[in-house]
Every structure is written in structure tokens, then in C-alpha cells.
């Protein structure tokens, strides 16, 4: 298996140092790394799951809008970033592991290195205090 581009590796190393949840995907949306704070959102440890295909990890969330209506994937920041290689931001709700909706903000950005080619994307999750 070839090594990832260094901009992917460095994003993982950075995420590993941060206290906010960070997800890193490849260009297909497969989840290739999430840090310890993100493990709380998933309820799973990266060491246990390893990388996850998009079909698997995307079903672990139930993103909804203010009215509780399910958000289509195309409205999620990370999906938009993967589609058009630009940063996106959105505040919405996800159903927590306890069945309670948690208001979160997500900021996503593309990983585009010196070659100019997009090699993946990062999503940062910010928990909102007002629920």
C-alpha cells in the first residue's frame, strides 16, 4: 500500500495534537483517520475500527436540521468539500449516542498540497453550547 501524501500525514499529526474532534477522509470520502476527541462522537476508537469506507461511517450519524428533518448528504460541509474542493461550514444537529440531539458546527476544508491535486479533506467539529 503506497504511503499517503505528506499533507495528509501532517494533517493527521496535527489532528493528533488537537483537543477538538477532527476527521480526515480521502478524496472518495473514506474515513482514513479520526482523533481521540472524535472518538467520543463515534463512540468507537480509531485503533479498533481503522479506516472506514464512506458507506459505513456515514450511517453512524443522523444529521438533522432545526426542525428535526434529516439533512441530505449534499448539504453536509464535508460532502460539499469533497464535491467542489472548497471550504464549507454549517451548523446543524446530530443525534447523539444517547438519542439526544446535539447542536454542532462543522468546518471542512480540502487538502490540496503543492502539486495542486486534492488528496483528501478534513472536517472539524465544534460542539455548540446552546442546544
Amino acid at each position: 500500500m503506497p504511503a499517503y501524501e505528506i499533507e495528509i500525514i501532517l494533517n493527521r499529526q496535527l489532528a493528533d495534537c488537537l483537543s477538538i474532534p477532527v476527521f480526515i477522509t480521502d478524496t472518495m470520502g473514506n474515513l482514513i483517520f479520526y482523533n481521540e476527541p472524535a472518538e467520543e462522537i463515534f463512540g468507537k476508537r480509531f485503533e479498533d475500527t481503522g479506516e472506514m469506507p464512506v458507506e459505513q461511517w456515514s450511517t453512524m450519524f443522523r444529521p438533522v436540521d432545526e426542525a428535526g428533518i434529516r439533512l441530505p448528504p449534499d448539504e453536509l460541509p464535508l460532502v460539499k468539500t469533497l464535491q467542489n474542493a472548497t471550504p464549507h461550514h454549517k451548523t446543524f444537529w446530530i443525534e447523539s449516542l444517547q438519542g439526544k440531539n446535539q447542536k454542532i458546527s462543522v468546518t471542512s476544508y480540502p487538502i490540496i498540497g503543492r502539486t495542486g491535486v486534492m488528496s483528501g479533506a478534513v472536517a472539524i467539529f465544534w460542539k455548540s453550547n446552546d442546544e
Binding site: M1, P2, A3, Y4, I6, I9, R12, Q13
Partner: peptide, 10 residues
């Protein structure tokens, strides 16, 4: 990181 996929220069 002790995985060749995550090793710069591998």
C-alpha cells in the same frame, strides 16, 4: 506513526 502508509518518504 508505525504504519508504512503514514510514513513520509516510505
Amino acid at each position: 506513526i508505525k504504519s508504512s502508509q503514514w510514513l513520509s518518504g516510505f
